[in-house]
Nucleic acid binder design. Sequence first.
DNA 1: ACAACTAAACTGACTGGTCAGTACAAAAAC
DNA 2: GTTTTTGTACTGACCAGTCAGTTTAGTTGT
Lengths: 197, 197
Amino acid sequence: MTDGRSRRREDTRQRLFVAAVELIAEQGFSATTVDDIAARAGVAKGTVYYNFESKTVLFEELLRHGIGLLTAEFRAAVDGLPPREALAALVRAELEYIRRYRAFAQLLLSEMWRTNREWQQTLRLLRGEAIEVIAETVRAGVDSGDLPADLDVRTASSALFGVGLVVAVDWLVFQPERPIADVQEALLGIVRRVAQT
Amino acid sequence: MTDGRSRRREDTRQRLFVAAVELIAEQGFSATTVDDIAARAGVAKGTVYYNFESKTVLFEELLRHGIGLLTAEFRAAVDGLPPREALAALVRAELEYIRRYRAFAQLLLSEMWRTNREWQQTLRLLRGEAIEVIAETVRAGVDSGDLPADLDVRTASSALFGVGLVVAVDWLVFQPERPIADVQEALLGIVRRVAQT
DNA sequence: ACAACTAAACTGACTGGTCAGTACAAAAAC
DNA sequence: GTTTTTGTACTGACCAGTCAGTTTAGTTGT
């Protein structure tokens, strides 16, 4: 069961993910070479190809892994909460996630709105899954009258997702000395005002 | 003065800018080749190097050109207006700009928060110039009491800039069938609520 | 206990292709 | 007659992906 081989392999994959996410966040997918990733992970280039079909597949699995985690945290955050509290919980969860997986968030922000890339379809799908959690919450709030009736669910959801991302990453990149708690405060304040019926 | 030669050259440079901005918006800087840019501009590769020192310099001048235009429109928009109206005018100007230079906005969103790229310093500087115009307006509003006193000028300004960018580009990429006027409406509503004293 | 065996995991030199940048003679535009 | 553009060919660096060989972890036989 606890096979040392598969544990070792999972470890290598994890190290490759970490190396790849950092480098791609800094430089972008195309500017990051497989040799770079291997070197930063402390493995040989061949190991990358033993563990992943190709550079693109490595990136796609990385996206799946990262966004999957985010979606899970979204689901856990809203669980059982009434709409307006759930909305605040979502903002908190998103920022907490960005704080923890800073490089991944930066990568997401940079690659999210690209077109004409082979992995674009994958990213679009995953983005949809994460936003769907937000959309469910917003929809419930609008239906129950807890949120303004004229709120467009699809728009509000994707805006909320994007805004959290951009504000947090901007803060991390351009004003890193500030505590993330301040961003959370500011964003919560904005969301609360906008959510007023 | 109106030298036909320099006008012609300016024309070529312009065509190269347009080709480059479209390709880089779609694929990113590294994935875009000089041959691609030349081909899309309908120009020989040598012409690119006759007009620009290198691929990187072409991109830097492109950034300067594009953000310079945006900054100018910001300045024109706020000219003489009282703070709260100036703020609304800024949002309108930003969205109008994004509508007109869609590809450039997309490019900006993708490259803005990168680190470790040779042109990053240039971009950071230019971003500062554009945001400074917003910051002046916000500062004036806070000083005169037209905007909430507890508003952090630097944060609010960069947030406003980034949010406009992300919401507009998100709309353009994921819901292109919708009229941009809707985004403007939504954003203005949000900004108005947040700006309430 | 431990040596022999096996398959999984990993290595790194190598290949084939791509791309930024160069060179330059001839042509076109002004 | 000067500036700008073209077209083509070339170079050298770089890089994704391959593969034959090596190491490691677990298994089997004694």
